[in-house]
Design a protein around this nucleic acid. Sequence first.
RNA 1: GGUGCGGUAGUUCAGCUUGGUUAGAAUACAUGCCUGUCACGCAUGGGGUCGCGAGUUCGAGCCUCGUCCGCACCGCCA
Length: 586
Amino acid sequence: MYRTNTCGELTLKNLGQSVTLCGWLQRSRDLGGMTFIDLRDRYGVTQLVFNMDSRPDLCEQARKLGREYVLQVKGVVAERSSKNPKMPTGDIEILVDELSVLNAAKVPPFTIEDHSDGGDDLRMKYRYLDLRRNPVRRNLELRHRLAMLVRNYLSDLNFLEIETPCLIKSTPEGARDFVVPSRMNPGQFYALPQSPQQYKQLLMVGGMDRYFQLARCFRDEDLRADRQPEFTQIDCEMAFVEQEDVLQTFEGLMKHLLKEVKGVTYDAFPRITWNDAMKYYGSDKPDIRFGMRFVELDDVAKGKGFAVFDDAQLVVGICAEGCADYTRKQLDELTDFVKRPQIGAKGLVYIKCNADGTFKSSVDKFFTAEDLRAFAEKCQAKAGDLMLVLCGEAMKTRKQLSELRLEMGSRLGLRPSNVFAPLWVIDFPLLEWDEETQRYYAMHHPFTAPHPEDLPLLDQPERWGDIRANAYDIVLNGNEIGGGSIRIHNREVQNKMFHTLGFTDEQAQAQFGFLMGAFEYGAPPHAGLAFGFDRLCSILGEADSIRDFIAFPKNNAGRDMMAEAPSEISKEQLDELAIRLVPQEK
RNA sequence: GGUGCGGUAGUUCAGCUUGGUUAGAAUACAUGCCUGUCACGCAUGGGGUCGCGAGUUCGAGCCUCGUCCGCACCGCCA
């Protein structure tokens, strides 16, 4: 037996016991006559003590050991004469009488500490060392715990976890597919799933009723801090349900997770339509940890001779409480912030509500104190508040103001990572116009059912942009953590949908034929939802990047820095796959 | 495809504005001393292709251009 105990569990209760421990050498302190070693494993750290008086041989051996050596020690649990209240095992130490080095180790390239001296890329390259650190280990423990909670909760509700294939048919809609050549079918390719969408719908046709899967998904698109080329979804589908059933089921799941992991309980999650989300937050994933809702100011801003406002499609502002004392420098910073190319506003108008009841604004030339009072009333701004106003083309301006709202929320400390504000966004548009290709695309996917009230609009091409979808997103702290829809199970509606998207019957048949075919054999009404599991972990783990919640993540360019993948393959492999590489032009 | 920031001891960084003798600090590492440390302490020591290439210059870590790599963001992500 390698070990009788872990390094995290021995206390005064175990005094006098003979134990065997295994672990890594965290740190050693050689005091001359005696040497202390901190032995670390997944569960904690236990101090080993070696004394020159009692065992000079072992003591000599111990002082030669380096960091991250793998050790096995046998000894007796003893009370420390000077205790360390900072560690759970700080009252005891092990008087070692047998020491074996299970493995030596090179000096690691960074310190294996909670606050490592290693930079991000170095830690990625040596991810197996990074995993030894407490923060990373805790993140993976959280991920495991959430996965278990999800599985148990859904299983108790009769959901079956069913695996779907990873080698599937490529479809050009949506994200770019990762593609896998088929050796046995030269010149043909599988795609890796962007989601198990069609398979889970087929499971409904197959009578599975309630399905879920912690499913690995793949998208060949550029990465972000919260986006990886392969990621995990909690993928769910239910038959014989309406939107309300789906929302209730998965609101229940989210409440369960938040209660178990964060100890917080919630009433019904707020719901907001997509239209209102855009109108009041300028975003389809509003962060409602704080207010600062948009106020549309057209009626007080226009017609006063300020051409910038008069010519704008929309004038809209927010009120930042208590910010009237912002300095010139701070206001310039905010102006620069919205003028950055990524945001692209032309400028920023501010109106300070001074403590003495006067106003100071960047547009004093055009507006009287009375005019500005009207602004303040609309925004419900009090003395001491600061109004920030943008204008221009409506949707663009809303998105710009949304960025400013989030920035102000962050500056004012209104977005603490340990507060969780979930909500549903419902009634998304069904279709999205694409200027480049001059056609409509499904905002969600082509199987999303239109809102029942809007069904007639499918026959009126000029109204296609107004059709609402029977689709919903769940948003947490300004992040889309899940989304889904009622699916089309009616062949006729599906045909209309494909026509709307500009598919010919033949194209629809070629791409989705097996799903369409299945729908002719008694598809039940069904609906579903998928959560982004990595992102959910990172938010509940109170971190910004999902990379720390994935054991072996990819870097910015989609590379595995540790394994050095992707890599070239041999001529023989290429020949087998009937693939010839074209030299890349410089 | 685009924008911004960064690349200097094993590691994290300073040095660059204003080019000039031998490129520093902390930490890590090595050696020695030290019997209650726990970020142990003290002393000594080794450790550098300043990402790479070209240019400007008498002279480049520093200025210019290019290139590679990393990070964040925009586009993209049904």
